[in-house]
Nucleic acid binder design. Structure first.
Lengths: 110, 110
DNA sequence: CTGCTATTTCAAGGTTTTTTGAAACGGATC
DNA sequence: GATCCGTTTCAAAAAACCTTGAAATAGCAG
């Protein structure tokens, strides 16, 4: 619950949502902070603050590569968040999400 | 995007998440504000503020029944939010969400 | 070492959210 | 119509969040 609220909070800001999506799309390879700042059109400093929020929410992680930092998704955590929402959606609305339960068994490590 | 950020924002608070889930589970029948306040363990006044946020996010709606107000989910909007998250999750991670795309065709009116 | 690049940290300030309790409102009951 | 109920509205205080720009850190290249 607390974790889910944190996750949703991380996605509740347009800049962060933009950044998060870019990171998701980049997958395992990841994206540098610089690329993210440019993509989102914000200052490095501001971006850094948002990345901190996203990181603390557990949805993404960083690794270093020389002087740059590369951000990657924690797919498992994202899957948990999706599952959380989907469960609410489906308990009581089975027609809407009939096939989703299988989703829970299909997670992969991150 | 903006809509999604709003939706996530609405779910980013524990009280609201609790309330939202109860409303989801109640489905078409709905729940009264009083029941929600008790369930969440907050004052009516505080609850009302949170319900306003949820309502403005477009995830739930109210109807009146005598002196009480009954809150129900807007399933379609919730489905959109799920879809949004799921799309991010799946673009680039097809193994994780392989069966989810069909979800998008299975929405129902609310 | 010096300087340059990529990025974060810090502190300050501003803005938005959240919480409170009191008061208002509209419907139902007497 | 007086009163009670369920709920919202309001205003004020408290807390959380965002943005900024300047300074710090850390790696790399000359």
């Amino acid at each position: 619950m607390e974790q889910a609220a944190l996750g949703f909070g991380a996605l509740s800001h347009e800049t962060r949502l933009t950044v998060f999506r870019k990171i998701m799309r980049a997958g395992t390879e990841g994206v540098t902070a610089g690329e993210l700042a440019e993509h989102a059109g914000v200052t490095p400093s501001n971006l850094s603050a948002h990345l901190t929020v996203l990181t603390h929410s557990g949805l993404i992680k960083v690794r270093r590569d020389g002087r740059r930092r590369i951000y990657t998704p924690i797919v498992d955590a994202v899957a948990d968040l999706v599952t959380f929402l989907v469960e609410d959606c489906c308990n009581g609305h089975p027609d809407v999400c009939a096939q989703l339960p299988s989703f829970q068994q299909r997670r992969q490590a991150s």
